[in-house]
Nucleic acid binder design. Structure first.
Lengths: 255, 255
DNA sequence: TCACATTTGTCCGTATGTATC
DNA sequence: AGATACATACGGACAAATGTG
């Protein structure tokens, strides 16, 4: 008899079954999606059918579907002909999780805007390297729509956010699209809550965007960098300004 | 009578109540966490207690807790004195979601490594600007531990990943920590699956890391940039190499 | 317009596994 | 070892949503 306890074996022997049922189910379904056995647009069996197939209760299936839904693998709708359909909404899910991280860990607007500036400027290299004619067309189209909206006397809030999404797409590197989506999620949330977008601000932004597109089309990289920095700096000032006001209003400082 | 249907109003009128019960519950709990009413380390009431408090069924509470768990807000453990505890694991959740996006959308290793290089190099600016003595100490410590492991004739896989996490921390900007966590999740997953880390490779990496730390300590930025690029380029080659082999082995091309 | 079928959404009762005291 | 308190899991039931005839 010695002092070796079960505890000592925990690092050596892993349990045969440590996963919870619903985790097992969601992992199995994930695998099917990764394998290509379940393709985007394809309908999954109903909850009760899945329960029978996996030989588990419906509750476990539901919790598994909840996981897949939140991870951005499926969309679930009620009603006849409803149910779970394979569909990638991961991008927007990453955005909301990033936003959660911001709120939970109380990231400062200064950190956010400076990091954003650095990342987006470095992304511009890729735009110059990889953007095609169609990308530039999309950007031009975006600017045109933004101008039209401003001409109609309303701020082009959505369009000006979309511009950066399109810029990321023009980098032809999906990683930047993911990161940009995260950035824009924070931006959209913050702006919608704390700032009133004025027409004048919107107009300046659109003008800057238009100049950026021109610089890209004319392959003038240094000019584009300067313009993008100016654009992002303007956004920073608005954000940080309202963040300070907000902190004052709430009367609580950062931990 | 005109052709205006209910459908036309969907963009104008949002439903009074489109949320499902469990979404309501998880949102309410999230708010309590953001408000600071529920602090990290704090225990939530039991499932049945929450069900009574919110006046909903246990199943709705369970699905709400599943969401909070997956979003990285709580940890759930069974047994007496178990239950849901507020705890931020969002960083690792963002990592796994990022990894999911990679697998789902079949991002190429080329895109991943080039984007990573760009982001990490731009992050280096922040390291030079903000890193304190303690950050450099952490990096030095990491290199020392890696060297010790290699001296013991085993590859310093974990330590070499951790190096980049510490580098992000040294930037003193949490945004980079988040992005880095996402990058490392992909890296760890890929390496653990497809490549055998050789001692020789590990040694080269550690030597490079050591040189980077020295360059940072001596405030030699251009040198640090060159070294970091070299380090990341080495990682790229290993990854892309094994990615090609892997694609060949599986016998499936990218969609 | 209305009834119907299907599927998700929700609740309840109950049983089991698990960790702590 | 036994009692406990909790999550986990199952099955049944009904409500709500939604497409179809």
């Amino acid at each position: 008899m010695n002092a070796v306890t079960t505890e000592d074996y925990k690092s050596l022997i892993e349990p045969v079954r440590n996963k919870r049922t619903f985790e097992d189910v969601s992992d199995r379904l994930k695998e099917l999606i990764f394998n290509g056995a379940l393709k985007p647009g394809q309908q999954l069996p109903s909850e009760s059918a899945l329960a029978q197939l996996f030989q588990v209760g419906r509750q476990s299936v539901r919790e598994a579907l909840r996981i897949l839904e939140l991870s951005g693998f499926i969309r679930v709708r009620p009603g006849v002909k409803g149910g779970a359909v394979v569909e990638s909404t991961i991008l927007s899910k990453i955005g909301s999780l990033f936003l959660d991280a911001f709120k939970f860990d109380r990231v400062s607007m200064e950190d956010f805007t400076t990091a954003r500036r650095a990342i987006e400027v470095s992304m511009l290299d890729f735009v110059f390297k990889n953007a095609g004619r169609s990308d530039i067309e999309s950007l031009r189209d975006n600017v045109a729509r933004a101008k039209a909206r401003i001409a109609g006397n309303s701020p082009a809030f959505e369009e000006n956010i979309e511009f950066h999404r399109l810029l990321a797409k023009a980098s032809r590197n999906y990683v930047f699209s993911i990161v940009m989506e995260a950035i824009l999620a924070v931006l959209a949330d913050f702006k919608s809550k704390f700032t009133v977008v004025k027409i004048e601000q919107s107009r300046n932004v659109v003008d800057c965007h238009a100049a950026i597109v021109t610089a890209i089309a004319e392959k003038k990289k240094p000019k584009a960098v300067v313009l993008l920095k100016k654009d992002l700096m303007g956004a920073s000032e608005i954000l940080i300004g309202s963040a300070h006001k907000e902190r004052k209003r709430i009367g609580r400082t950062r931990a």
